[in-house]
């Protein structure tokens, strides 16, 4: 889910990333609506509220909504900044850093909410700020590594795309278009998992309160550990595969011309099965 970048990604990679992160976003959004009466995985509503509060002259609310919008923006900025700055790291580590940061933020919010939250307005404002920051981190990361194909918290855009794609699918000219079908599948998966995440988040919050944020952390840890497991598996397979052993020896210049020729044939065979 996290190892591959943009054009290297297959539909399967995007479906897995979309399903897990949309679930996390849906859970966070509904839990925050129940706990704080504020949406945290979308900023469209906050933008409208920002204008409304300015018009009404509610200056405290104007400042708070401005800070919330800024927190989402800063999360998105930081996520992409990490991807651009740590370009010497391997792709997995680079892509995992924003997710690790998001897990930390959500775990702190869950811990504080569970044990110390007194329901004051100031606490509510800061906790919503933290959640918006976490969602900004996540949305920016998945959008960047999927080349814009996956945006787990952008439901307005998702429904616009779905509307357009369904209209195209109903036209016989495009019905067999694989690219269109893949996009439709991906967008239905995002919508479905975002909705189910919302249901799950709401149910868990009503049952267990702020511990629901630990459940979101578990979903995100699955994303992290799934790819880590794959990395370890491939590393192990590579170490035990004679083909890769031979490649290393070739790099070190420890192969005869005959062996080099044989290996070159095997490389071509593997690349074009």
């Amino acid at each position: 889910m996290l190892r591959k970048y943009r054009s290297q990604r297959s539909l399967k990679h995007n479906l897995q990333l979309a399903g897990t992160t949309a679930t996390a976003a849906g859970m966070v959004n509904v839990a925050s609506v129940i706990a704080f009466f504020a949406f945290t995985s979308n900023v469209t509503g906050h933008m409208a509220i920002f204008s409304e509060e300015i018009v009404k002259g509610h200056w405290h609310q104007v400042i708070i909504v401005f800070l919330w919008l800024f927190a989402f923006l800063f999360g998105a900025f930081l996520s992409n900044y990490i991807l651009l700055t740590f370009d010497k790291f391997n792709d997995y580590l680079r892509h995992a850093l924003p997710v690790i940061l998001e897990v930390l933020v959500l775990a702190v919010i869950g811990f504080y909410g569970d044990l110390y939250y007194m329901e004051t307005l100031r606490e509510t404002e800061y906790l919503v700020l933290g959640l918006l920051f976490a969602m900004g981190l996540q949305n920016s990361l998945v959008a960047t590594i999927s080349g814009g194909a996956v945006k787990t918290t952008h439901v307005t855009g998702l429904f616009t795309d779905l509307g357009m794609e369904i209209s195209m699918y109903l036209n016989p000219k495009f019905r067999t278009n694989k690219e269109l079908i893949d996009k439709l599948r991906l967008h239905f998966v995002i919508a479905g998992f975002y909705f189910s995440g919302g249901l799950l988040g709401g149910f868990l919050f009503l049952q267990f309160g702020f511990k629901v944020f630990y459940a979101v952390c578990i979903v995100l840890l699955v994303v992290l550990l799934y790819d880590y497991y794959k990395l370890i598996k491939y590393k192990f397979l590579r170490k035990s595969d004679t083909y890769y052993k031979n490649l290393i020896l070739l790099k070190k210049g420890q192969k005869t011309p005959k062996e080099k020729k044989k290996l070159a044939e095997e490389i071509i065979k593997r690349r074009n099965p």
Binding site: F36, A38, I49, E53, Q61, I64, V65, L121, T124
Partner: peptide, 11 residues
């Protein structure tokens, strides 16, 4: 009494 959200909900 509690204020929630951005101060727009009175509980």
């Amino acid at each position: 009494w509690l204020l929630k959200g951005r101060g727009h909900i009175l509980k």
